[in-house]
Design a protein around this nucleic acid. Structure first.
Lengths: 181, 181
DNA sequence: GGCGGCATGTAAACAGTTACATGATTCC
DNA sequence: GGAATCATGTAACTGTTTACATGCCGCC
């Protein structure tokens, strides 16, 4: 999956691993995050597979930057991937729910502390989403063609917002339930 | 993570890999799914690590069933894990959103087809959740102590229901938006 | 002088997925 | 007779995470 995210961004412009990391953090991280280590190794793998090429930029003298660009093969594989619709629900994984599921034997206060802390984090995440303006940029404004692109970005952000609000509501209800046990 | 789910279930009763697979499918799969292959290999790994023991049951003659039971070490590791609260938001991954994010270059009809199909799947998932009654059982009713346990199970199910409803609403809105481009 | 951020990567471990494999029983 | 489900597992691969590693620059 990460492979396609990187191809997707490289379609806009050649970039370094670090640029890609920032783009991912500023946009797709909310529904697909990646560590820098994975980005660098995936780029190397993609180069071996002929999906991207890289050149070393020494213009800065003291720092070597490897700039990646997508190849024709990369472009076609990306389009191929976009062309094949998902036919299943993406599986979701939520370790908080796993923990709650098995919390029958835990102290009430311990469970409540955990849920209240998650509530804080969700609230912060919601504020963060609210500050994002897709009209302006996904961290690197001028890279991307913002007619159609921004609309799709906006839609994914809308789900993020709805998700956090739903989650907060559920946390509040769940905390209240446990308090009244 | 799967390790703790398996320990959690084995705390109720000794079981085979297949029993665990069914329990997972009938309860935690909505927030943490696992393939049978992973369950079997994880159980072997856990046995090596001393978290569980297994005995081979030949009572059936034609079929060898390996029955796993949690050890004291397994029980204590499980409690230790439950004791350490999550301090971060569990990362979420949703490949549909990745695809939508990069759908600026796609045909409108292709995106719409994909979203409409996801809508169907989400609707089915919602119906499925609505049929689940935690009061009755998580597939194997008599295994579990259903005072406190069922309440926590119910809470995770509530999130599943809220999630599907939120997702359906977002899909409807998003489909409408794309239709009106 | 120390800290944080920029910028790059590798290595090892762990987790998860897909494919292969077998054989019995039950339902149509 | 064939398909589906029960029931068990292994092997190979892919993907992800954590830890290790380095060195510069700018700020306080």
């Amino acid at each position: 999956m990460l492979k396609y995210i990187l191809l997707g961004f490289l379609n806009y412009q050649p970039m370094t691993g670090y640029d890609l990391k920032r783009l991912v953090d500023g946009s797709t991280a909310h529904f697909w995050h990646a560590y820098h280590s994975q980005i660098y190794t995936t780029l190397r793998k993609m180069e071996q597979d002929g999906l991207v090429t890289s050149i070393i930029d020494n213009s800065d003298e003291r720092l070597e930057r490897r700039i990646y660009d997508v190849t024709e093969l990369g472009k076609s594989k990306f389009k191929q991937w976009l062309g094949k619709s998902l036919t299943e629900l993406p599986p979701s994984k939520d370790s908080l729910l796993v923990r709650l599921f098995f919390s029958g034997s835990r102290d009430r206060s311990s469970v409540l502390d955990e849920l209240r802390f998650q509530r804080q984090l969700r609230q912060q995440q919601l504020e963060l989403y609210r500050q994002i303006k897709p009209e302006k940029s996904p961290a690197e404004s001028d890279l991307i063609d913002f007619d159609r692109e921004a609309k799709f970005w906006r839609m994914t952000l809308d789900l993020g917002l709805a998700y956090e609000q739903m989650y907060l509501k559920w946390l509040d209800e769940t905390i209240a339930k446990i308090e009244s046990f």
